Computed example of a mutant assay.
Amino acid sequence: MIDYSNDVLQGKIVACQKLIWACQRFLNDVEREGKEEFPYVFDEEKARRFLFWMTQFKHTKGPLAGENIDPDPIQIFIFGNVYGWVHKDTDIRRFTTVYWQVGRKNAKTQSLATVGSYEAMALGESMSEVYIGATKKEQAKICWKEINAQIEGSDLLNKPSKKYKVAYGTIEHIKTKSIITPLAKDAGKTGDGFNPQCGIIDEYHAHPTSEIYDVIESGMGARSQPLMVIIT
């Protein structure tokens, strides 16, 4: 992550201004981590744990289909930041909202899928709820289907026994009773009864309003470290 940030700042990697700012922020934060004015530290093991999780799944489409995911440097930088930074006293994650705007065919849905399964199956939250939000059910199910395909092809989650079950459009992690389910605009307008650990908003540019975001975000108050991920 430090090498990637330096390469961006030195122009070795072509980047927009906001990515340049993000890389500079990361390097600045590494220098001041744990100080009184900046009560956060980078937990390398937490970052590595999520990136290891990514490698336990296979590409489901394209020329790499069937091969295990090898995180790209930009994936390492983004999700290393998300999962690595924690409060030095509470160990609670620093970032609870992620916004990633990037061109098409940059593994956005693949990345979202690994986040969704991690938040439900590997984070350790009991009865975690992961919702994939979209204006239409068909759109929400694109990421859900990617998660389902990834976990079906993962030895980690199927051997020696299956650690999840799928029924009625919901993936459930058997040990923690956590769920992953698509959520469309017509599925619930108020958020009553929701207790999301993670909200995934794919193709946000297609949303005419923030309604789905608001429904998910409004239910996160009971979680100590929820995560909202928005990609467009």
Rank of each mutant, 00 (worst) to 15 (best):
T135V: 08
F50S: 08
A184W: 08
N81K: 12
D70R: 14
F26L: 09
A122H: 07
I147V: 15
Y4E: 03
A149W: 03
Y164I: 00
I132C: 09
A187F: 08
L64R: 15
I180E: 09
H205W: 11
I179F: 09
G199S: 05
R48C: 03
G191F: 07
F26S: 03
F52Q: 13
G219C: 04
I142P: 00
V41I: 15
A113W: 00
H207L: 03
H207V: 00
K145V: 01
G133I: 09
W100F: 14
G221D: 03
K145T: 05
F52K: 12
K46D: 06
V215E: 09
D7G: 01
G219P: 01
R223N: 07
W144H: 12
D3E: 13
T109H: 08
I216P: 00
V102H: 08
P226R: 01
Y99T: 04
P39A: 11
M228Q: 14
H59K: 05
P226W: 00
L27K: 10
P208I: 10
G34S: 05
E36D: 14
L64M: 13
I2W: 10
I92M: 13
T55M: 15
S210H: 12
L112M: 12
E152M: 11
R223C: 01
K58T: 08
E152F: 05
W85R: 04
N158R: 15
V215L: 03
I151R: 02
M220C: 12
Q150Y: 00
F57M: 07
S154M: 10
G153D: 11
K175E: 15
G62A: 04
E67F: 06
C198L: 10
N158A: 06
S210I: 08
N81V: 04
D155H: 09
G116Q: 03
G103A: 13
L27R: 10
L227E: 02
S126L: 11
Q24P: 05
L157P: 02
H87E: 12
K185R: 15
E36R: 14
M54Q: 15
T114W: 00
I69R: 01
S224Y: 05
S210Q: 13
T109V: 00
T232A: 14
D70I: 10
A120M: 07
T176V: 03
G169H: 12
Q139H: 12
D202K: 04
V215A: 08
V30N: 05
T181R: 15
Y40V: 01
S5V: 02
T170K: 15
A206G: 02
Q56L: 14
F57V: 01
L227I: 01
K165D: 01
I151A: 04
A149V: 02
E129D: 12
E67M: 09
G193Y: 01
G133D: 10
G219Q: 04
Q17L: 06
R25P: 00
K46W: 03
L51M: 14
R94T: 04
G169D: 06
W100I: 09
L156G: 01
F194R: 15
D3G: 04
I179G: 05
Y204H: 05
F50Q: 12
G84V: 00
